[in-house]
């Protein structure tokens, strides 16, 4: 693999756009997951009473239960979002970039 191909790819604006879009999506989704999780942990550590509130009048289930489950389910859905975006969009651009570089 010669360096010139790499150089050509690097100077391709499509490549730069692809990388910045993909990186941005990855960072935003990571931030959502981390903020949600560490936010939850901070509530657990500093204001646990908040999560003890009953879900509805007379229910033993607390708001903590669905919130916890939501962290798992939503962050999984976000992985789905990332995969969907990457397959629909990024892979196509990636192929174009490689083709233009003569691969």
């Amino acid at each position: 693999m010669s360096t010139s191909i790499y150089k050509r790819i690097r100077s391709n604006p499509k490549f730069q756009a692809l990388v910045s879009r993909r990186t941005r999506l990855g960072l935003i989704l990571s931030a959502i997951v981390l903020v949600a999780y560490y936010g939850f942990m901070m509530v657990v550590a500093f204001n646990p009473a908040l999560l003890h509130k009953p879900l509805s009048e007379g229910s033993v289930l607390t708001v903590g239960a669905p919130i916890g489950a939501a962290i798992i389910i939503v962050s999984w859905l976000l992985t789905g979002l990332y995969v969907w975006r990457a397959n629909a969009d990024f892979d196509k651009i990636n192929e174009e970039v490689l083709k233009e570089a003569g691969q």
């Binding site: 990855g26 960072l27 916890g68 962290i71 962050s75 992985t79």
Partner: peptide, 18 residues
């Protein structure tokens, strides 16, 4: 225990994204 379970899970999305 549920909090532990959540902590065991959240690494996976991050591994995918980054």
């Amino acid at each position: 225990g549920f909090i532990y379970i959540i902590s065991f899970f959240v690494g996976w999305p991050i591994i995918l994204f980054l």
